[in-house]
Simulated scan of single mutants.
Amino acid sequence: MIDHAHDLASVREATDRLLSAAASLDNAAVAEPSRLPGWTRGHVLAHLARNADALVNVLEGRPMYVSGEARDADIERDAPRPLAAQLDDVRDSAARFQSASEVPADWSRTVELRNGVTDRAARIPFRRLVEVELHHVDLGIGYELEDLPKEFTEREIAFLADRFSGNPAVPPTLLLAAGREWRTGGSGGGEVTVSGPAADLLGWLAGRRDGAALDVSGPALPALPPL
């Protein structure tokens, strides 16, 4: 069962961790490359701020972004800002998201995200938590996949496994980590079993690691479509 209030508390905690860690940077470090190809740390911080505002739009019944081009342009516009401006924006946009989430609402309603994707409103706080936690790792400032809360890691593995479930480009796959199992992929071909530490499994599913640390039983480690 999705507990949006619990997830909102987790978002606050994760945002505080990210802001405290990023405060140790300086302007030069913000302009350095992040772990995401083509993005500086400034791009990551700008994206986090704009994503918070986009999710406010979702909660309030507006389009998440005006367009994909506008989304990208906003990130490019905000990426070069100095550290203080970046931190203020992440903090202020996070507060706007929390405020929008505290308005009495029907959390069972269906909302629309990007590219026609829909979800229950109650899952929006967890989607925001994913953004904050994984992009904290993407900053490359000492917070690793192994540092993510266990509950978050297992929930995100389950979320991504569900995302690839039924995709004919992914063979039927059994995922094993931390004494738990998940299934994903389509129904054609022989089943593949992928096992290993939960952090490595999450990293592979989320496109943050190449899966070299995972054990594979079957033809080969599946190639996953981009997220």
Rank of each mutant, 00 (worst) to 15 (best):
Arg127Ser: 04
Glu146Lys: 14
Ser99Ala: 15
Pro125Val: 06
Val111Gln: 02
Ser108Val: 04
Glu133Ile: 08
Thr153Lys: 09
Glu146Ile: 00
Val137Phe: 05
Leu145Glu: 03
Leu129Phe: 01
Gly116Ile: 09
Leu145His: 05
Arg123Ala: 01
Ala100Val: 06
His135Ile: 13
Asp119Gly: 05
His135Lys: 04
Leu148Tyr: 07
Thr118Gly: 03
Leu134Lys: 00
Asp106Arg: 11
Leu160Pro: 00
Val111Tyr: 01
Arg114Ser: 14
Val103Cys: 04
Val132Met: 06
Phe152Trp: 06
Asp106Glu: 13
Glu151Trp: 00
Glu112Phe: 03
Pro104Thr: 11
Leu145Arg: 02
Leu129Asn: 05
Ala158Pro: 07
Val111Thr: 01
Asp138Arg: 05
Tyr143Asp: 04
Phe159Gly: 00
Ala105His: 00
Val130Ala: 07
Val132Tyr: 00
Ala105Ile: 04
Asn115Thr: 09
Phe126Asn: 08
Pro149Thr: 08
Val137Asp: 00
Pro149Met: 05
Val117Tyr: 12
Pro149Asn: 10
Leu139Glu: 05
Ser99Met: 05
Ala122Arg: 10
Tyr143Cys: 00
Pro104Ala: 10
Ala121Asp: 05
Val132Leu: 11
Phe152Ser: 09
Pro125Tyr: 07
Thr118Val: 15
Ile157Gly: 10
Ala158Val: 03
Arg114Lys: 13
Val103Lys: 15
Glu112Lys: 11
Leu145Asp: 04
